[in-house]
Design a protein around this nucleic acid. Structure first.
Lengths: 213, 213, 213, 213
DNA sequence: GATGAATGAGTATTCATTCAT
DNA sequence: TATGAATGAATACTCATTCAT
């Protein structure tokens, strides 16, 4: 391993160290209440060091979303490329993937929607922004191809595949947001899992072509 | 009209004046970038006056959500109480109501999820918080009763009515958030309406009991 | 006195209060070492209040120069408009005015040259910048008219009046800077006054037309 | 050449490399906006290395002034020691030298006055400070001796030679500062050269003893 | 000597909130 | 009630300097 490579690795390790700390602090306090000092403290680094790895607070935050998008993309791609699965099985696999995405980072959806603010987007470096858009496009694109296949061979209802993937993703994120919100407001138990199950069941039923029709 | 009542009315007028201004400013700048001075300016009042009507910035913001919840509640209740509608027709009416909720305030969902932050909730007065919870419960309850009726008479699939109303609401909010987010990130055209149509179609199909089964 | 006018007066009083404090602190610490907190403390106000009266630190600093320019302008105008003085007497009066400008604010020249930095100028509001330019132009213009008169009637050497006023001002500021600098570096006694006397004597002799030539 | 000497030479080469870079960066950005990283980048060295050659930023900056003082000193000494020049010719030669000093580093005067800040001086090493004082004394001393000779033999007016050299230098630096400042504020053309010519003409006339008097 | 990653003190500026009028 | 001037706590970000390698 060359010295260059070793350095690169070390650098990546630091980035991860910061990201882990940031995730923790942002989770606990939310974007605005979390201070860079908090994160630096959590990462056991000095505030200045954070800026050696991330341009600013927004970009650090956005990097969290990026990780999720990367994970989502990998999972979707994997489903898409698994041979010998028919469209229905692929949909099931995607549903499974969604659970894993949630486990990977339960704040996934909140993070994703922080990105949506144009104020946020303005402060991101063009490269990071492009990467986010790219991954976003790819993930939705992957989902869409799965739906397309199903629409084509008559498994799914005849709708635009991109619309189907949008709805699939919207349903997922809507449920995650709503159940976590409900938990806070109503202090109910965490019933995310079963709600997700029911949601996906309804979605699947709504999307499958009626047999014999 | 007593002098007391007149005063009360005057007070309510002021509150509305402030809420209208707040809605405008928050829409344009988002919660954090909007300043109390901005809102005071828009309402043509002094900053100090805002505090005579709202405890703090968070509570002013939360009041916007309250208005939406009130509107949602009225619409749901109205659907519920309309006689001579069968469950499927009531579902259609609820879908129609959702469109109106969105038109009433397109920022509806973003507002609603700002509420979810525990930081926000901590700063609300117990009364306001209770009112929000109450309206939230009532609206979901109303929806649930509609679903319950449909489940009972075999129109809808046999699922827990509360779960169905949660999913219904989640789907709606998920689509609103995702399409607005997609619009920003991908600079696509605004395709909310058609996506909502498709979403509700899928939901309806997923929720309706198959005829003859 | 109307309420409007009273407020305006109060506001002006505050501005002066801040300016006095700023002058003290900037004198002691220089522009960069002086903090807004220092100045606020000296003015017995809170930091935030400074920003109600001055856009930023640069503009507060520039306001000090403005006061000097105003004073300089008044003095030059007065000399120009005094009747029954021949050009030589007017030059003497201007020399006298320069001493007073220095007494008015010994940091005069340092302030003036802080203005010269383009970084500084960029941060000033266009209005303030224009005011500074205007006063600067007027003062030099006033001096120039005095020299013009003297050149015309043969009192002074035949040079461009604006150039003469530039040189006059340069000599004054050069001496002020150099003697104060020399005082610091060499810890010599303060011999500004006599050096200024000699300088102006040389200038006057250099500028007066030789009798009988 | 011994190994010791070779090392010393190498060290001096590095110092010059840094000084050249520093001059470029300070010229473009001014003292405060210029960062040590900028300078290191320009010198193609690492920031840490700068500190092997200069105690701190202030001292690096001061070293630029030192170079000018060294140049000034050499020029003045040369004029002083040129035989067969009468005092007037020596004054002319000094004027010529001033032009060269300006060409050598147009920021000369701004640099020189940065030194004056007591904050700056506090951060210099005693050795550097002493060197600066020494060169300053020597240069002024050299000028003073030229004036002394002229005063003695009746070429110049009967004033204290040190005062004359102070005024000479003040006039030079005042004109340089004022014309550059005027250029920025009034966006006038660069008329330094002609203003310097006129200034020195006036100075010379003011300083020369009237023939036949 | 040279490096450059890490440091962490330092500061201008903002803005929700208060309170004397 | 309404005002709006004053407050002052809070914080992202910079950059001169150090020191382990």
């Amino acid at each position: 391993m060359g010295i260059q490579e070793r350095k690169e690795r070390e650098r990546e390790r630091r980035r991860q160290q910061i990201i882990v700390a940031a995730k923790k602090v942002f989770s606990e306090k939310g974007f605005n209440k979390a201070t860079m000092d908090d994160i630096a403290g959590e990462a056991e680094l000095s505030p200045g060091t954070l800026y050696l790895y991330f341009k600013n607070k927004e970009e650090l935050y956005a990097s969290l979303s990026l990780r999720i998008l990367q994970y989502l993309h990998i999972r979707v791609e994997h489903v898409e490329n698994t041979r010998d699965l028919n469209p229905e099985q692929k949909l099931d696999a995607m549903i499974k993937a969604m659970y894993d995405v949630y486990e990977f980072d339960p704040l996934v959806i909140i993070n994703m929607f922080h990105l949506q603010s144009s104020e946020t987007l303005k402060n991101l470096s063009p490269e990071l922004l492009e990467e986010i858009k790219e991954l976003s496009r790819k993930s939705i694109g992957g989902m869409a191809r799965i739906f397309k296949e199903g629409v084509k061979n008559g498994t799914f209802v005849d709708m635009h595949p991109v619309a189907l993937s949008d709805i699939f993703w919207s349903l997922f994120s809507g449920v995650v947001l709503w159940t976590s919100s409900k938990r806070i407001i109503n202090a109910d138990k965490d019933f995310l899992r079963e709600t997700l199950d029911l949601s996906f069941a309804i979605f699947k039923k709504g999307v499958m072509r009626k047999k014999g029709v």
